[in-house]
Amino acid sequence: MTKKLNGMITTWLVVATLLLAFPKTVFADGGEGGTEQEVNGYHITLIFPEPIKTGENQFHIQITDSMDMPVTNAEVEVSAMPTEGMSEHDENEEMATEVPSTGVMTNSDGMDMGSEAPATGVMKPNEPAADEHGEEVSKIMLEPTMDSGEYAGELHFDASGEWMFNVHFTVNGETTEVDFPVEIARTLGINYAVLADFFGINAAAMIAAATLKRKLVVVRK
């Protein structure tokens, strides 16, 4: 009976180890050298120097005109919205009320809508605007960098998946808008760190108990 139980336990532990050792990874594409688009005679290049991930991401935008000259006097604003799960969300809304916009709640994409807005920037954020779904999107105003026609900023992505990165710029009173679909990779570092921490604490507790148990047995003998 004991042998059987031990065998069963060993099997469970092996299964558990395998499950934890070979998790499915959810990394997506990200960190391309740059994505380009042509709109209204402008050539806009969005560059993320590092692979795009959840959390803070630095980026810069290069704008050149039809003569391939850098546009230096643009007022550039950016915003980002997740594009996944919209249809499910709409379906859910038929059954229930919308989750209040304040407070630590998650939207349909599991995005933390708590103490900070969906997008934060190193630059001054403008007043939130509403997107077509009525959800508030914070826009970040960018300022030019040392390089001519280049504008930089930092954006916070709360969840992985497909996002729409919107660039909105005004040159001489003329406004141009362009969307860049971006894929946010998932970083599991924090998850593994959490697992490792708990594993460490539990292992320490069990080692301590095993050591003490041996001592107790010796004393009793």
Binding site: W12, L19, G85, T106, S108, D109, G110, L195
Partner: peptide, 24 residues
Amino acid sequence: WPTLLVFMVIMFELILGPEAAHDN
């Protein structure tokens, strides 16, 4: 024991599965 197995699947999903609650 089957409950423990299901629990392990749940733990795996919660920690390493999809990060959006509605997919998890």
